[in-house]
């Protein structure tokens, strides 16, 4: 479970996140929905321990990210929006490297690597260098790296961006499987169809503040009915 309490973050004169609180439950897909500059990425970076909140705290399975960083991050898997692969490492080397950074070694590491390669269907490309991979293959490699240690919490920053329909399908099925296994999934997205298909709960964020929270149907109702896009625009005041 991932919770954020009273999160506040300023960059110079700009307030990126302003007293934002949320909770992402185990066994559910929670989606952060917000426009560009709404504070989504800053929030996700605070969850990943990449930036420290000026005020408030992020807790992952009881471990405060600021105070018990290593314990918190060892419970978390984070898929970054640009994947950040090394062009001269192969797919399997990426997965193995991530496993080692999570403290796996020996037989445990080998089993975990094979498990992640299996889960993402990476057998055919396991020895290919990242430089030659397609966008979808890059996403799968990055995701395999993210799940290598069997995290109970997954954070995904716009995971479907730039993916073809086949890759989206693979990702969707995988996320559903994780949810069924009781994993806490928190993702950010712009793709309304994906959000409706996958999300159990939505957190609408605008200008760093919580605007609305609830199941997709509740958000649509609170936003004046219609579809999620119209409700989102109404709730964030863009429609006006």
């Amino acid at each position: 479970m991932i919770t954020g309490e009273g999160l506040r973050k300023r960059f110079g004169a700009v307030t990126a996140v302003d007293g934002f609180s949320f909770a992402a439950q185990d066994g559910a897909i929670t989606t952060l929905l917000g426009g560009n500059g709404s504070g989504k990425t800053t929030t996700l970076r605070m969850i990943g321990g990449l930036i420290k909140p000026d005020a408030g705290s992020v807790v992952i399975d009881g471990a405060d990210v600021s105070q018990a960083r290593r314990r918190a991050l060892s419970r978390l898997g984070m898929l970054h929006d640009e994947f950040g692969l090394y062009p001269r490492l192969t797919v399997v080397e990426h997965v193995r490297f991530a496993g080692q950074l999570y403290g796996l070694s020996g037989r445990k590491l080998s089993t975990a690597v094979e498990g992640a390669v299996d889960a993402l269907g990476l057998h055919d490309i396991r020895n290919r260098f990242a430089a030659g991979l397609s966008h979808g293959q890059r996403m799968k490699t990055a995701l395999a790296r993210t799940i290598i240690h069997g995290p109970r919490n997954l954070v995904l920053d716009e995971p479907t961006r730039g993916l073809d329909v086949f890759s989206v399908r693979v990702l969707r099925e995988l996320l559903k499987r994780f949810r069924a296994d009781g994993v806490c999934l928190l993702m950010s997205s712009h793709a309304m169809a994906e959000v409706m298909e996958l999300s159990d709960r939505l957190i609408v964020i605008d200008k760093g503040r919580l605007v609305a929270e609830g199941a997709p149907a509740e958000i649509i109702a609170r936003g004046g009915g219609g579809d999620l896009e119209a409700a989102f625009l109404n709730l964030t005041g863009v429609a006006a």
């Binding site: 990943g48 321990g49 918190a72 984070m78 950074l101 990055a142």
Partner: peptide, 14 residues
């Protein structure tokens, strides 16, 4: 530059 530093720093490594 190739944006691989961010994922590296998100690991539980000092």
């Amino acid at each position: 530059e190739r944006r691989s530093l961010e994922p590296l720093l998100a690991h539980p490594v000092g």
